[in-house]
Design a protein around this nucleic acid. Structure first.
Length: 847
RNA sequence: GCGAAAGUGGCGGAACCGGUAGACGCGCCAGCCUUAGGAGCUGGUGGCCGCAAGGCCGUGGGGGUUCGAGUCCCCCCUUUCGCACCA
């Protein structure tokens, strides 16, 4: 049993003294930027989940390095944000004191893990020299018109009188005082990421990412094609429940509608993906906070409408999104609008199932063909009128303009498989999809509709009414208005506030520090007030990878030369939990900086691979369950090499796996036996490949392991090396140094300390990672003269026979039939067919 | 509800284009060695029948395609994750 502690300390010191892990950023010939998601340095220390992620990325980086690349593998700390702030509040230690401690602890843990970090180029987001450039990025977006101020709702605890982050709301209640949480409108800064929605979506077609991550991004962006349709408001008495429009396209454009579309009377605009169902729109629904509600509401309905709006506003943002089991609620406003297709007066309701944030905040309700509208109509007894039907129903009807379609308990939503329009005037009988286009075109002539694309992606709210973040670099001046802080005045330093708790009065912590917010207007020199919100942590992490190669430049965020050489990132490995927000935001920021001329590329990560989640004995790790793995304990006990090997062996890296204490014994034995075998080989000094079977095993393993590393299949790579070791030691044989050398090199990415030690013992110049090359397999060495041919009868395996490579079918048959087990089954009937795949398989088909 | 992924021994997991299911490891069993220690070494280990040779069954369930299906197609069940009334 070898003692890992000594050699791990030895090699860590060696690597550091010789700057083994610090590539020459200006001279590297084959730069390879291997990025991993930098951690949030929690006070509890490094989590095994972090280490799992980093270890896999390190396997990849070290592999690339042994393949001849100059690998840059930096690390940093994402240290701003609500987690740190809340923890600091809990333990009552100021974050400016707590964070450096946590970072020191993380650094200690990471340094002993054997990961090939370049410690000379770290990035910490809370460092003013870093967030100076975070603020600079804000200013670039502001100047480009991509940072704007808008009103937006936040979670609001009426008892604590404070803004709450979504994480602080539990079951609709404040996690601290359990009061019911509501919403409040605040003026906040937004980045207009929606301007980039189309490009962010389009580029997903060519970047090389894990497919599930691409799907998640596509869904999040949520592009839908449809139409914007305008429904004129109907006056109190006019617009009889007319049906004349049902006569057809010509008749439908009644003068009243045309008149009202000219702007004298505001129309209700809706977005729909189903313009084909317009003739079935029997009512409308607005979001409770829709601006037209006021105007639409009739006197007799006012009290009820107001009550509903107030109640809706009191539901917090988190709860409102939880929709299961909620029955539809809503209130009639008393107002009406005109269906532009039928000319009918239809009632306008408000309901909280319509969201102000999506589309126009208003919908045309087609209960026959939308499940939500259907439920709402059933709830309130509104008309349900089918306008789309399956072709067989249409075929059976005398007139497609007057079809009676029976709906059961659900709306009929199909429309893309040949369904046809019915009860839709002149459009009746058309296929639904074509009908929809024709209806939009027809209304378009009157300015009542136009094709439109909508995204579910929202603009990115970056304002946080908290303390622990970079101040937003904006000033408000009575004379000059909103004034950006001049770039030369950056950073706007976050002051050391003793009392940084979110205010009892709802204002941001920085708004209580006059020495912070009182400033001179950079434009007129008069009194101005600083923005007191800080920015979202996601902004810090949206560009950290751009900074790593340029950390030694203090006069620019990114150095053009370094950036050209190292970026975009060659490989980014990280958790799927960041599949959407972090990855999308960093793509957006990169795209904007590209457009503004600061970067020569618009996609930051050429390849992204997600890693899986690690669980503990079948259950998620959590502090409350007490099943959290502390890496320190395991490294103390088994060494970093064995721990790394086990982490990557316990399951497929991209799917995650189950951590079991007992499992670590296997990898530990494997490393120990490898050391024994190598040392035995060195002791005898025998060279060459005396045994062709062993030589073949060496080459087969090289091929297998190389392929596995390419696809991040680390578990099978380790298994293949274990197999090789078993072959080298089979029957108590002692391997030669030549047999063992490729094993040691391939062990490099897995157990770097031991591999470097054994490399040295084999007579190599340290470090392995500087002087060894990944072995290549020789295809000629894989060939055998004899092959084991599986023989089947009717697809069932009956024997395997040894035949010469490339044997003819006759020869193979003869060899197979010579076997009694085959003969017996073949003799049962007549051989009607023989399937022969040379060197692979022989199958007799017997009837 | 929508989206994504996955169901294989006692356990973690292998299996490239359909072609010897269970590699590798844990655990377990037997043996060896030993100052019995949770060390090391050797061999065995899917289930059932059989002294054996060998046979039958077997990749969540049910159908199908094929000489041949863990792998492809259809239906169903279960689990995990993400989104959550997106019009």
């Amino acid at each position: 049993m070898h003692d890992p502690t000594t050699i791990e300390a030895k090699w860590q010191a060696w690597w550091e003294a010789n700057r083994t892990n610090e590539p020459d950023l200006d001279g590297a010939a084959r730069p390879y930027y291997n990025l991993m998601m930098f951690p949030y340095p929690s006070a509890e220390g490094l989590h095994v989940g972090n280490l799992y992620a980093f270890t896999g990325a390190d396997f990849h980086g070290r592999f690339r390095r042994l393949r001849g690349h100059d690998v840059f593998q930096p690390i940093g700390f994402d240290a701003f944000g609500i987690h740190s702030e809340n923890y600091a509040l809990k333990v009552d230690i100021h974050p400016m004191e707590l964070i450096p401690r946590s970072i020191a602890n993380f650094t200690r843990q990471l340094r002993r893990s054997g990961i090939m970090y370049d410690w000379s180029r770290t990035v910490t987001t809370t460092d003013p020299e870093y967030y100076r450039w975070t603020q600079w990025i804000f200013l670039q977006l502001h100047r480009a018109g991509l940072a704007v101020k808008k009103e937006a709702p936040v979670n609001w605890c009426p008892s604590c009188k404070t803004v709450l982050a979504n994480e602080q709301v539990e079951g609709g209640r404040c996690e601290r005082c359990t009061a019911e949480v509501g919403q409040r409108l605040l003026s906040q800064w937004f980045f207009r990421i929606t301007e980039y929605a189309e490009r962010l979506l389009a580029n997903l077609d060519w970047i090389d990412w894990s497919s599930s991550t691409l799907t998640a991004q596509r869904n999040w962006i949520g592009r839908s094609e449809g139409a914007l349709i305008r429904f004129a408001l109907a006056g109190e008495g006019d617009g009889a429940a007319g049906v004349e429009a049902a006569g057809g396209a010509e008749g439908a454009g009644d003068s009243e509608v045309a008149e009202q579309a000219d702007g004298t009377n505001p129309a209700i605009e809706v977005f729909t993906t189903r313009p084909d169902t317009l003739f079935g729109a029997t009512f409308m629904v607005l979001a409770p906070e829709h601006p037209l509600v006021e105007a639409l509401t009739t006197e007799d309905r006012r009290a009820e409408v107001e009550a509903y709006r107030t109640a809706a506003a009191a539901i917090d943002l988190v709860e409102r999104r939880k929709t299961e089991e909620r029955t539809k609620t809503g209130v009639f406003t008393g107002g009406h609008a005109v269906n532009p297709a039928t000319g009918e007066r239809i009632p306008v309701w408000i309901a909280d199932y319509v969201l102000m944030e999506y589309g126009t905040g208003a919908i045309m309700a087609v209960p026959a063909h939308d499940q939500r509208d259907f439920e709402f109509a059933r709830q309130f007894g509104l008309e349900i009128r089918p306008v789309v039907a399956p072709p067989e129903v249409v075929a059976a009807a005398a007139d497609p303009a007057a079809v009676d379609l029976e709906l059961g308990d659900a709306a009929f939503v199909a429309h893309a498989a040949g369904e046809q329009l019915v009860n839709s005037g002149a459009f009746s009988g058309l296929h639904a999809e074509e009908g929809g286009e024709r209806i939009v075109a027809w209304l378009g002539e009157r300015g009542l509709a136009e094709p439109q694309v909508n995204f579910r992606l929202h603009d990115w709210c970056i304002s946080r009414q908290r303390y622990w973040g970079p101040p937003i670099p904006i000033l408000y001046c009575d004379a000059c208005g909103t004034v950006p802080v001049p770039e030369e005045d950056l950073p706007v330093v976050l002051p050391h506030l003793e009392r940084f708790k979110p205010g009892d009065d709802g204002v941001a912590p920085l708004a209580k520090d006059a020495s912070f917010y009182e400033a001179a207007c950079p434009s007129c020199g008069g009194a101005a007030r600083r923005e007191t919100d800080v920015s979202d942590t996601f902004l810090d992490s949206a560009w950290y990878f751009l900074r790593y190669p340029s950390t030694d430049f203090d006069d620019r965020p990114v150095d053009p030369g370094r950036t050209r050489r190292w970026l975009p990132v060659d490989m980014y490995i990280g958790g799927e939990e960041h599949a959407v927000l972090h990855l999308l935001y960093s793509r957006f920021i990169t795209m904007v900086l590209h457009d503004l001329g600061h970067l020569p590329f618009e996609e930051p990560y050429e390849r992204f691979r997600k890693h899986g989640l690690i669980i503990r004995e079948g259950a998620k790790m959590s502090k409350t369950k007490g099943n959290v793995v502390n890496p320190d304990e395991y490294i103390d006990r088994y060494g970093a090499d064995a721990f790394r090997t086990y982490l990557m062996f316990l399951g497929p890296y991209q799917e995650g796996g189950d951590f079991r204490d007992s499992g670590i014994a296997g990898p530990q034995r494997f490393l120990s036996r490898t050391a024994d075998a190598v040392r035995a080989a060195v002791a005898t000094g025998a060279t060459g490949f005396p045994d062709p079977d062993v030589e073949r095993a060496v080459h087969a393993t090289i091929r297998q392991v190389t392929g596995d590393f390419e696809t991040l299949s680390f578990n099978t790579a380790i298994a293949a090396l274990m197999e090789l070791l078993n072959a080298l030691r089979a029957g108590g044989r002692v391997p030669t140094v030549d047999e063992v050398r490729p094993l040691v090199v391939m062990l490099g990415p897995i157990a770097p300390h031991l591999a470097d030690e054994l490399w040295e013992e084999l007579g190599g110049t340290p470090s392995l990672f500087e002087h060894a090359r990944w072995p290549e397999h020789d295809p000629a060495k894989l060939r055998t003269d004899e092959v084991e041919l599986p023989v089947q009868v009717n697809g069932k395996l009956r024997a395997t026979v040894s035949v010469p490579r490339g044997a003819t079918e006759e020869a193979a048959r003869e060899a197979a039939l010579a076997r009694e087990g085959v003969q017996r089954h073949v003799a049962d009937g007549e051989v009607v067919k023989v399937v022969y795949l040379p060197d692979r398989l022989l199958n007799f088909v017997v009837r």
